[in-house]
């Protein structure tokens, strides 16, 4: 590609260098308006003192340099929340992928009726609003009235009579994880299933003729061929799960007991909107943006290094 650029195009018309940009212009202008401008405003606000008083003209907006960032980085709670968010998002992404891919493979192995049932169930989960799913789950796991505890007691497990799922930090996160995976696995499942269906049957047949196990077929045949699809279905959950808000906000009453289940987005909401410190909220937004960009770029980079064009 670079050889062509260096050798072939230099001699051509000057305009041709700009031709691709000309075609791209409409899309780029729309993108700039919808993306660059808000991010620019977000960045700008993060360098100002900008609270409700400044918005409604009670006080003038003043330039603060990196003061908002210094305040943020010196807040011990921010680091705790950041670590919790990263770990929680990582677990969510992995679980979503495992469940999604597992069920996609299962879909290719079962009969039409069961496949239809599984598809419908997944689509139902997909179509359900996060807020609805969260509310229902909180009800199901309610310590006083929830059927889940009753069932666990009924099958003979002790200690679940009065067990509150949201009291302990990890059981609360586990409950939220369950809801996050539940509403994001269908995308992975459906996409990967479509990908598997597109793999030529003779390749899979050849693998099984060679005596490959199910795991081996997945590892050495399906996964490499599904690579571009897997990239997409991994990046999506990374972005979603890093930004999870509704589930935490609804299921743990805005961050759990003594803030034990706070994630960055809920933390930013508390700072930015509930207490009207828009500038600090913007600083959190910028930090989140940079982290997400970095994670995504590193991930793409690692994949490229493994040798294939995406």
């Amino acid at each position: 590609m670079s050889a062509v650029a260096k050798g072939g195009r230099r001699g051509g018309l000057g305009a041709s260098r700009w031709t691709p940009w000309l075609y791209l212009a409409p899309a780029l202008i729309v993108l700039a308006a919808l993306l660059v401008y808000p991010i620019y405003q977000l960045g700008l606000i993060s360098f100002l003192e900008y609270t409700q008083a400044q918005v409604s003209g009670g006080e003038p907006a003043t330039f603060q340099g990196f003061a908002n960032y210094t305040e943020l980085f010196s807040d011990r709670q921010f680091w705790e929340v950041l670590v919790a968010t990263l770990v929680f998002a990582a677990v969510c992404v992995l679980s979503t992928l495992v469940v999604g891919c597992g069920l996609a493979v299962l879909l290719t192995r079962i009969r039409a009726v069961s496949r239809l049932a599984l598809m419908l169930a997944a689509l139902g989960a997909w179509a359900t609003q996060a807020i609805t799913g969260s509310t229902v789950l909180v009800f199901l796991f309610d310590p006083d009235f929830g059927p889940v505890n009753k069932m666990l007691v009924w099958v003979g497990l002790s200690g679940f009579e009065d067990f509150s799922w949201t009291y302990d930090r990890y059981s609360a996160f586990a409950l939220v994880l369950f809801e996050v995976v539940w509403c994001s696995f269908p995308l992975v499942m459906v996409t990967v299933y479509a990908g598997i269906k597109a793999i030529p049957g003779e390749v899979l047949e050849a693998a099984s003729l060679d005596g490959a196990s199910n795991w081996r077929v997945w590892r050495s045949v399906m996964a490499p061929m599904l690579r571009p699809i897997l990239v997409v279905v991994t990046i999506q959950p990374i972005i979603w799960d890093f930004k999870v808000f509704t589930q935490i906000y609804v299921m743990t009453n805005g961050g759990g007991i003594a803030g034990q289940n706070l994630v960055l987005n809920v933390y930013a909401y508390q700072k930015a909107f509930a207490s009207s410190q828009y500038s600090l909220g913007s600083a959190i937004g910028i930090v989140m943006l940079l982290i997400l960009l970095a994670v995504t770029l590193i991930y793409l980079r690692l994949l490229r290094r493994q040798g294939e064009e995406l």
Binding site: W21, A32, V36, Q41, V55, S56, G57
Partner: peptide
């Protein structure tokens, strides 16, 4: 190479955005 080639137009775009909209976030007069 891709990054190098994109850098200039992106920078130009951002600069254009800045000049077009170089204003502080809105503040209303009450």
């Amino acid at each position: 190479n891709v990054f190098a080639r994109m850098a200039a137009p992106v920078a130009a775009l951002v600069a254009a955005g800045l000049t077009a909209t170089a204003c502080a976030p809105s503040t209303s007069d009450n």
